[in-house]
Simulated scan of single mutants.
Amino acid sequence: MDELRRAMRATERADGLDIADIMRRGRRLRRRRRIGAGIAAAVTTIAVAVGVDAVATRPGPPDLPPGEPVATASAGPPPPTPTAAPAPTESPLRPVGTVVDSGIRYGADARVFFMVPIDVPELPRVTIGLVAGRRAPDGHLTSDFLLNDVSGSDRRAGFHEIGYDQQRAPTDTPVPTFGYFVGPAARIVGTVDGRQVEATLAKWSEDPQVVIFWFDPKALTPGTPLDGIIARDPQGRRL
């Protein structure tokens, strides 16, 4: 509104307002707002979780308060008509390989873990991410936490990123501490406060060298950082 008032004062002539100049200023203002909205949308979509869609909106011309003069023109193209933003839709989760049932239940829902494809242009050797999700009785999958490497390769030997529950307040669906290991792991043991906690393991159906693991929430409170973690092969040797 301040921009419009400045335009009207600056372009007032003896024979009235310079309508063409006011319209040009209005178009420049709309362009600047669209550019600003585009930058904000780009920042928002940098950290996108699986199952969350970003919806872009197209801002229309600013509304005028009652009693404010409106510049009109008898000729020239009509101003663009604002269009409604599309309704948000849920991105379908596309598990790669078998969905692993942890045996943990939240009412009728089951805590599950599964791999999904990811595409990070600057990390061409990172193509999969591990999801801690829930499966409803009808088979519908919900994602609670996506975990993926932020450097190197997703198939390098050893431990990869480990996921901790990010909720500050207790919830009815806490995410167990989880992750994956690449190698012939038969046991994975974490240490916290001087005690050892053993993880449950499941081999990924698409690559048996990829071992998904998680800790029972009753043995390790979700969100509790581990002091250390080791993996051992079937002969008990440390990997």
Rank of each mutant, 00 (worst) to 15 (best):
M1D: 09
D2E: 13
D2F: 15
E3C: 01
L4C: 02
A7H: 08
R9C: 08
A10R: 15
T11I: 00
A20M: 10
A20W: 15
D21S: 12
I22C: 07
I22P: 02
R24K: 10
R25A: 00
R28D: 03
R31D: 00
A40I: 12
A41L: 13
V50D: 11
V52N: 05
V55Q: 11
R58A: 12
P59N: 03
L64C: 00
P69L: 12
A73C: 10
S74P: 03
S74D: 08
G76T: 07
P79S: 02
T81N: 07
P88I: 04
E90G: 05
S91T: 14
P95Y: 06
V96M: 11
G97Q: 03
V100F: 12
G103H: 13
I104E: 09
R105A: 08
R105W: 10
R105G: 08
Y106M: 01
G107L: 05
A108C: 06
A108Y: 10
D109C: 03
D109H: 15
F113E: 02
F113I: 01
P117D: 14
I118A: 06
D119A: 06
D119I: 05
T127R: 11
I128A: 09
V131H: 04
A132M: 13
G133H: 04
R134G: 06
R135T: 00
A136P: 08
P137C: 12
H140V: 04
L141Q: 08
S143I: 08
L147V: 03
N148W: 05
V150Q: 13
S151F: 13
R156K: 12
F159N: 03
F159C: 05
I162S: 01
G163R: 09
V175I: 08
A186D: 14
R187Q: 07
G190V: 03
T191S: 11
V197F: 13
E198F: 11
A199V: 03
A199W: 10
L201R: 13
S205F: 10
Q209Y: 06
V211Y: 06
I212W: 13
F213D: 00
F213W: 09
W214D: 04
P217L: 06
K218V: 02
A219Q: 14
L220M: 03
T221G: 00
T221S: 09
P222N: 07
G223N: 06
P225R: 11
G228Q: 05
G228M: 06
I229C: 03
R232N: 04
P234L: 09
P234F: 11
P234V: 00
G236L: 04
R238K: 12
